[in-house]
């Protein structure tokens, strides 16, 4: 078990190093920030001064080394727009994003899991088909279309909710519902197929054959096994708690991290974009690590496999 944990943590750290490096590479490759910020008509002296001020005149690997050292010390630079610490600029938006993504995630799980399990148990009935139809809609319709449709329906026509902005709970309803439906559809599909896969396994037949009543076959034998693949998708969604709201925040003018990312990219505010990319990366790695550790706890096969492989 210890070897398993060590293995997973080491992988998480490696992934983080790659993410930090990628954030650097991608942003440097996308163009000259000095020109982007100052505009193509800026006088050469101004561009020169800007480059010097931000260290952009040094060789790329020096920039990388400095950047990496700074990241490790938690220094992520200042916003090129207003000079405040980029981390601070991003951090103050995080609660706003979580305010809509966490309720949405709860909605995803509370609706998606039972819907998926029931769809599997009532496979090929009208109920199953209904759930899967709704789920296909949630799965295939892009979130901005879903958001705009809901907004049109509930805000513009029925005038029940504000169509955008922030400040009250009512403002949060549309973004939460939009993400809630989409995520629930994804979880329902995954849960259904995980459950169907498990229900077809020989050990389910064994349980029935030894006299376990069907309800207990589900609760004691099927669910624990179906939970293993389902955990992956839920972990992925937890990992997207920060990044998952970019589109929806833009559609509903919700001032969270997602919207900040869109404006920062438009403004070529390198430091801020970098911080957001890193934050997204960190959340995903953390969620992944959590899922891996949960795996080890739920699935006994995982523990021994890696333990013997590592030994």
């Amino acid at each position: 078990m210890f070897a398993y944990i060590l293995n997973r943590v080491a992988r998480a750290v490696l992934t983080l190093i790659i993410i930090v490096s990628l954030a650097f590479v991608i942003l440097r490759m996308s163009g000259d920030p000095a020109i982007m910020i100052l505009g193509p008509e800026a006088p050469p002296q101004a561009v020169e001064a800007f480059r010097k001020a931000w260290g952009l005149d040094q060789p790329i690997w020096v920039q990388y080394a400095k950047y990496f050292g700074a990241v490790i010390q938690g220094d992520l630079g200042n916003s090129m727009r207003d000079g405040r610490a980029a981390l601070e600029v991003v951090w103050e938006r995080v609660p706003l994003t979580l305010a809509i993504t966490v309720p949405a995630l709860l909605l995803n799980i509370l609706i998606g899991l039972p819907a998926g399990v029931l769809a599997a148990l009532f496979r090929n009935t009208a109920y199953d088909r209904l759930i899967m139809m709704v789920s296909v809609i949630g799965f295939t319709v892009p979130s901005f279309v879903m958001g705009l449709t809901l907004s049109l329906l509930l805000a513009v026509w029925l005038r029940l909710l504000p169509s955008g902005g922030s400040g009250t709970v009512a403002h949060a309803v549309l973004p939460v519902v939009t993400m809630g439906i989409i995520g629930a559809a994804v979880i329902a599909r995954f849960t259904r197929s995980a459950m169907l896969e498990v229900l077809g396994q020989p050990y389910i037949r064994t349980a029935s054959a030894k006299g376990v009543p069907w309800s207990q076959v589900i609760t004691r034998h099927a669910l624990a096994n179906a939970a293993i693949p389902t955990m992956t998708i839920i972990g992925f969604m937890v990992g997207s708690l920060v990044a998952g709201a970019v589109v929806v925040e833009s559609v509903f003018s919700w001032p969270g991290v997602g919207r900040l990312l869109v404006t920062a990219v438009a403004n070529r505010d390198l430091a801020v974009v970098q911080v957001i990319l890193l934050l997204i990366g960190f959340t995903m790695v953390a969620a992944n690590l959590a899922v891996d550790l949960l795996y080890g706890w739920v699935d006994p096969r995982m523990r021994t496999k890696t333990a013997t492989a590592g030994a």
């Binding site: 349980a207 054959a209 006299g211 034998h221 293993i228």
Partner: peptide, 28 residues
Amino acid sequence: SDRALAHLRGSRIAMIFQDPASSLNPVH
């Protein structure tokens, strides 16, 4: 009914299968 049969299965008539490894619940 499934309930009535559940009482018989395992207690009156038991069954074992071809592939023992996958016939046992892997997480128990």
